[in-house]
Design a protein around this nucleic acid. Structure first.
Length: 594
RNA sequence: GCCCCGGUAGCUCAGUGGAUAGAGCAACUGCCUUCUAAGCAGUAGGCCACGCGUUCGAGUCGCGUCCGGGGUGCCA
């Protein structure tokens, strides 16, 4: 919007200078940065410094020429050369003010941009085993992945969010989980039963057993482990799905691992690898043993099937099919990759994983290449660990010790403390808002401490409320303004909005930056910058609110212009919060402070 | 050993190769008969871990060192 407008002006000025022979033909990108302080104007341009060397000219001299050229343009109030050759650009207030109606016209589309090359993207995240609730650890990936999908969609890509269900019937962990559920099921009936070694303990496992009893009755004691595996897996998956939906994360693809084994995709993919020569069963380089296991032949007599992943930068070759004939987990990975990049033809597949999976990167890159796909079509994004601090100490959150820290617990805990007098529904909403915002405040690349005591006990210290309050405040002002006869004018009839206060200018410039922020996020996946942006936009509005009274019956034109600006700000805040998956309440009542 | 991430204010963290490095929390001082004080204004707090390099210019890029966290299965 505004930024690209300025870049265009500078670019044509450079072109004019080139044509008149004052500058040699150069291939220097035009960049515009925010001015560091108000006395430096609105934007700064470093073209003269960048161009100095290739042009063989003093940067200051280039700056002077460019400044002279730019001064001719009516949109600039002032153009100055500063320091070694920076151009400080001050725009006319009328140009800046004209963007208010543009924002109102765009409405909810403000955050959207059109990418030059729209792609069909697949973003896989969370994808935890269906043997427990969504934990506070994997929830960071849920918040990040979901926000990233929203950003991709806003930048014009087609994006599918996908959950990979680890429901392979051969899973050791799932078998163990099923046996644990069965143990609790039997125990509840007073029957003899022993918890398997390394079994899953904890209230939630017992709860699953209770659900099995409630839904399927008490007469399933003789059912095999596989039956328990199926029903307990379905129960856990349903709960995960519900928890994620509460968290505002809805996947449009739920992809079953087992389905690939049943459809033959795994077999087909293994054959493709053998055909490509990237998988084989040679225990030693010179011996070929590519044959089926014969009846009566012991598995040990032949080796496992190997993926020659070390050819593609992995640190070692990987076993694809174990010596006992069962496919290893990576066989599923390969088939899954084939499904995404082959059968379903996504241009690019993203996998968002926790820090414990970073060892996957090399392996999965090898998988991608072993299947004959270029690395550009696949990307793993690792988010770093979250530590939950309670009373100054890390809160336990590991599985299998019966002390799982579930996402649902965190949401409820935060909500109940932040809004003790609100309805349960309202508490959940606020808990979700706080949780999502907190996760997204930090770069996915950084370790973060989530201070639960701070997030719960002292709600007014929470940045999410600062942002939401700005939105609620605007809604309140707009309501009051309407009562005074100032209604947001959608036709843009205000030709020349009387806005010129520095606070108004800063606010408008901030609002129109949203599409740039979104586009940047889609480039480098730094969705956390949107929380920073939200806080900055809210702050800029609060400054404006403090400095400029909106409703002034004796100044109808100014009041109308400021009402328009309030609406534009509201649109910006709402659009930003939408990308973060955080709600934008129209009113917030002050929390009781006794 | 090897791999990944980090080191910026007392704490948690932002920071597009650009000018005087920011926010929140914690501490201190003011501002509600006026559109929501969950707000605003102000004070204080920094060898951006260290060294070398690239550059007109480095918190930002490269190499090295130190410190912290995590990972490294014929588990899934």
């Amino acid at each position: 919007m505004l930024r690209s407008h300025v870049i265009d002006i500078v670019a044509s000025a450079v072109q004019a200078l080139t044509q008149s022979g004052e500058l040699p033909r150069l291939n220097v990108p035009i960049e515009i940065t925010d001015a560091k302080s108000a006395e430096h104007g609105d934007y700064a341009c470093n073209f003269a410094l960048m161009a100095s060397k290739p042009a063989g000219l003093n940067p200051r001299a280039i700056g002077e020429k460019l400044a002279a050229e730019l001064s001719k343009h009516p949109d600039f109030e002032k153009v100055e050369v500063a320091g070694p050759g920076f151009l400080n650009l001050t725009l006319t207030t009328s140009l800046v003010a004209s963007y208010v109606s543009k924002v109102i016209e765009l409405g909810d589309d403000l955050a959207k941009t059109k990418t030059a090359h729209p792609k069909k993207l697949n973003v896989e995240f969370v994808s935890v085993n269906p043997n427990g609730p969504i934990t506070v650890g994997s929830a960071r990936g849920a918040a990040f992945g979901d926000a990233l999908c929203r950003v991709f969609a806003a930048t014009g890509h087609h994006v599918d969010s996908e959950y990979y269900i680890n429901d392979g019937v051969n899973s050791e962990q799932m078998r163990l989980f099923a046996e644990s559920v069965k143990h609790y099921y039997l125990q509840a009936q007073g029957r003899e039963s022993e918890m398997p070694e390394k079994g899953y303990r904890g209230d939630y496992v017992e709860a699953v057993a209770e659900d099995v009893t409630r839904i399927h009755g008490k007469d399933k004691a003789d059912e095999p482990t596989s039956w328990f595996q199926q029903v307990s897996q379905d129960l856990m998956l349903a709960q995960q799905r519900k928890d994620l939906a509460t968290f505002g994360v809805e996947f449009n693809q739920w992809f079953s691992e087992q389905s690939m084994h049943e459809s033959g995709l795994v077999t087909r993919t293994l054959q493709k690898l053998r055909d490509l020569g990237t998988a084989d069963e040679k225990p030693f380089q010179n011996i070929i043993q590519d044959r089926e296991l014969q009846p009566g032949e012991h598995p040990q007599e032949r080796g496992p099937t190997w993926l020659r992943s070390s050819r593609f930068g992995d640190d070692k070759d990987r076993v694809l099919v174990r010596t006992n004939g069962r496919p290893a987990y990576i066989a599923g990975d390969l088939a899954y990759m084939e499904s995404k990049l082959g059968e379903r033809a996504y241009d690019k597949a993203f996998i968002i994983l926790g820090p414990d999976h970073h060892g996957y990167i090399g392996r999965m890159k090898a998988v991608c290449q072993a299947l004959g796909y270029p690395l550009e079509r696949f990307e793993i994004i690792i988010f770093q660990i979250v530590r939950f601090m309670k009373e100054g100490k890390p809160a336990p959150m590991r599985k299998r010790d019966g002390n799982i820290y579930a996402l649902r617990d965190l949401i409820e805990e935060l909500g109940a403390n932040v809004a003790p007098n609100s309805s349960k529904e309202e508490q959940i909403r606020m808990g979700v808002d706080v949780t999502r915002f907190f996760y997204l405040m930090r770069s996915h690349d950084t370790h973060m401490d989530f201070d639960i005591d701070l997030a719960t006990k002292q709600s007014d210290e929470n940045p999410v409320f600062y942002v939401q309050y700005a939105h609620a405040r605007i809604c309140s002002v707009l309501k009051k303004a309407a009562e005074a006869g100032f209604v947001v004018n959608l036709e843009g009839k205000i030709q020349n909005p009387k806005l010129e206060d520095p606070c108004e200018m800063s606010l408008i410039k901030k609002i129109v930056d949203l599409p740039y922020e979104t586009a940047r996020c889609a480039e480098d996946y730094g969705v956390h910058r949107l929380t920073t942006f939200a806080v900055e936009l809210a702050r800029t509005y609060h400054h404006f609110y403090d400095a400029c009274r909106v409703i002034q019956p004796e100044e109808p034109e100014l009041s109308q212009a400021r009402v328009q600006l309030c609406e534009a700000t509201r649109i910006g805040l709402k659009a930003t919060l939408d990308l973060l998956g955080v709600s934008a309440p129209e009113r917030m009542d002050r929390a009781s402070t006794e």
